[in-house]
């Protein structure tokens, strides 16, 4: 064979090998010590992998990418910042866990009616030898509430209650009604009946008693908490429950098609005014109820859930300040 022919064959082989092998080698080298997580819509498999292991105190390097549409990534009950997981892009995140346990990572951008099913777990082991903190059961369990049962309001107002008007009669109110414990354990309609039966308030008209209920509900929340609740509601709830709480979100039809039920309508006084904060907490924590409601237990801290609940009641009550 001629020398030129040999040279040309070598050149062809070298050129092809170079182009094919260098990227692979670089990719292999880059991937050392890193967990690569691919996000897909839940219908096409969700997170892959959907369970990973980590050690307490050892930084966990993650490379996140989406294989289809826009997703987001966050770890429940942690203060790790939420990151976007964009299609065809890599997002790198490094997390160090201080406490052992099972953490849930979840998608933060709605990616279809089954968005909330896009979850995975991180098993964090090792580390602290302290005995785990005793966890108190959530209030709905302590109160033994059946969160699957219907909860019609025993009474409903004839006009929209206003915490601002209620504040005018606040001085007449016994302080026992204003405690956090009272607020969380009672539905607004129960509170209305309690106040109506209170002789100290017998001079008040029915609407004004309702205004007092609104006042109690508001005084157990803060403007910051309600704002936080509003933000979280928009991100996590309104796709089904509707941006104005009407149970008519963009996925309500598909929820109905899957479960035969519609997402709860918070603008309906007959339903929401019969629900206590504790009951709502149970529904948010555990989900289910045959309605396609996601469970948020592994994701939200308790305070976060109370903020959302505080916001949800503003679909019924006018606030002092927006």
């Amino acid at each position: 064979m001629k020398r030129s022919e040999i040279l040309s064959r070598l050149l062809v082989i070298a050129g092809v090998l170079l182009v094919l092998s260098v990227p692979l080698a670089v990719h292999f080298y880059e991937g050392q010590g890193i967990v690569e997580i691919h996000g897909r819509m839940a219908e096409s498999g969700g997170w892959s992998p959907n369970s990973i292991h980590a050690q307490v105190g050892v930084p966990l390097h993650l490379r996140l990418t989406s294989d289809d549409v826009m997703h987001g990534f966050a770890i429940g009950q942690s203060d790790m910042p939420v990151v976007d997981v964009a299609p065809g892009k890599m997002t790198e995140v490094t997390i160090t866990f201080n406490k052992p346990g099972t953490y849930t990572y979840y998608c933060t951008r709605w990616c279809g009616p089954n968005h909330w099913r896009m979850r995975g777990t991180i098993e964090v082991s090792g580390g602290s030898s302290d005995a785990p903190q005793p966890v108190s059961p959530p209030l709905y369990m302590t109160l033994n509430l059946n969160i699957d049962a219907p909860h019609p309001a025993i009474a409903t107002p004839t006009e929209r209650p206003s915490a601002l008007r209620g504040a005018a009669f606040a001085a007449m109110l016994s302080s026992s009604y204003l405690t956090n414990d009272y607020y969380r354990a009672h539905s607004p309609s129960q509170a209305y009946l309690d106040l109506r039966a209170d002789p100290a308030l017998s001079s008040l008209s029915n609407p004004n008693v309702w205004d007092l209920v609104a006042y109690i509900w508001q005084s157990n929340t803060t403007p910051e908490g309600r704002a936080e609740g509003q933000r979280l509601f928009a991100r996590n709830c309104s796709a089904c429950h509707g941006e104005s709480g009407g149970g008519d979100g963009v996925f309500s039809a598909s929820v109905n098609a899957q479960t035969g039920k519609f997402p709860a309508n918070f603008t309906d006084p007959a339903s929401l005014l019969g629900a206590s904060p504790a009951l709502l907490q149970g529904k948010i924590l555990r989900g289910g109820m045959g309605t396609g409601m996601p469970y948020w237990g592994p994701i939200f801290e308790n305070e976060t859930i109370w903020s959302i609940i505080g916001y949800i009641y503003t679909f019924q009550f006018d606030e002092v300040q927006k």
């Binding site: 826009m70 951008r109 709605w110 990616c111 279809g112 991100r235 941006e243 963009v250």
Partner: peptide
């Protein structure tokens, strides 16, 4: 802009105006 399944956006040619919307957040 109301996204009804996944995150979408809208970019207007010529005007260059754009916006993105998540489902549930008009």
């Amino acid at each position: 802009l109301v996204s009804t399944d996944v995150v979408h956006g809208l970019y207007v040619d010529g005007y260059g105006a754009s916006v993105t919307a998540d489902p549930g957040q008009t």
